[in-house]
Computed example of a mutant assay.
Amino acid sequence: MVETTSPTLEKRIKAAVNYLNFYYGGKVHALKDIMMPVYEKQVTALIGPSGCGKTTLLRCFNRMHDLYPGNKYRGEISLEPDGINLLDKKVDPIEVRMRIGMVFQRPNPFPKSIYENVAYGLRVRGENRRRIIDDKVEKALRSAALWDEVKDRLQDLGTNLSGGQQQRLCIARALATEPEIVLFDEPTSALDPIATTSIEELIEELKQQVTILIVTHSMQQAARVSDYTAFMYLGELVEFDKTEMIFNQPSKKQTADYVSGRFG
C-alpha cells in the first residue's frame, strides 16, 4: 500500500492508475499493482533506481508497449473527466497518443522541415487546412519557446538545430495536437546544463496549460520541477506524495534512503 502523509491532496485528478500490472512478453512482471493519481496541470515526477519500472509505467500511458508483441496490461489507467480506460483494447492507441504526447530521452526530430515536424501529428489526425495547420504550428512553437528562434527558417531541417532546440522542437511536436497530458522520459539527460535549465523552465511554464508526467534520475531535477513525486522500486510504487514531503518528510525509510543518497 502506498502511503501519503500530507493532508488531503486538493488538486483535480486528470488520470488515475488503478491496480496496474504490466508484463513484458507476457512473462516478466515489470509493474505490480500500481495505484497512483496524476493531478491536472501539475508536474508529477517518477523517481527510483534503474530498472525500477519508471519508464515502463510512463509508456503505459500512451500505449507504447503495444508496438511490441506479447506485452500485456492488467488493471487500468482512467483518463478523466471522461473515465476512459486508456488500456482498453477497444480504445484506439493512435487516438491515445494524440491525447497523450511524449518527449523522449534523446531529441528525435523527424528528417523533415521544422514546420513539418510540428505539423506531423495534425496531418495524421486528418487536418489538411493550411491556415489551421499554420496557426497550430506557430502556437506549438511559441509554447515550446522556440518560435522566435526559427520563425524565419521553418523550412530548414529540424535535424540542423542544436540539441536543446531539437528537444524543444520535439516538445512543440508533442504539443501541436493539444494533448491533455505530456510524458517526458528523462528529457534533459542528453543535454548540457544550459539547455537543461531551458527545458526545466519550459516545463514550469507548460504546466499552466497541460498535465505533465516526467521520469528523471536526477533528484535535484525532480525537486526543482515537480509538484508531486512517486518513488518506485522493483516494479512497485513505494510512496507517492507532494514533492516537498517526499524529499523532506518521507513516510518510508526506503524513500528517505533513496532521496538522501544512502540507498543500497
Rank of each mutant, 00 (worst) to 15 (best):
M1F: 02
T8K: 12
R12A: 15
A16F: 11
A30T: 11
L31G: 05
M36P: 06
P37S: 13
P37G: 10
V43K: 01
A45N: 07
L46D: 08
G48W: 07
G48R: 02
L57Q: 05
F61K: 12
N62L: 11
D66F: 09
P69C: 14
N71I: 04
N71S: 12
N71R: 06
G75S: 09
E76A: 15
I77A: 14
E80N: 15
K89V: 13
D92Q: 10
D92K: 13
P93F: 10
R97L: 05
R97W: 05
M98I: 01
R99L: 09
I100K: 05
M102V: 11
V103Y: 03
I114D: 09
E116R: 05
Y120V: 02
L122A: 13
R123F: 03
D134F: 00
D135M: 03
D135Q: 12
K136E: 14
A140P: 01
L141K: 07
A144R: 03
D148E: 15
L154Y: 07
Q155H: 11
D156Y: 10
D156V: 01
L161H: 05
S162A: 10
L169E: 06
C170G: 10
I171S: 09
V182H: 05
L183Q: 04
S189P: 01
T197L: 12
S198M: 13
I199D: 04
E201D: 15
I214T: 13
I214F: 01
V225Q: 10
D227S: 12
Y228L: 06
Y228W: 01
T229G: 09
F231D: 03
L234P: 00
L234C: 03
G235I: 00
E239G: 09
F240Q: 08
K242C: 10
T243S: 13
M245I: 05
K253A: 14
K253N: 14
A256D: 09
D257W: 00
S260V: 00
G261P: 05
G261I: 03
R262S: 11
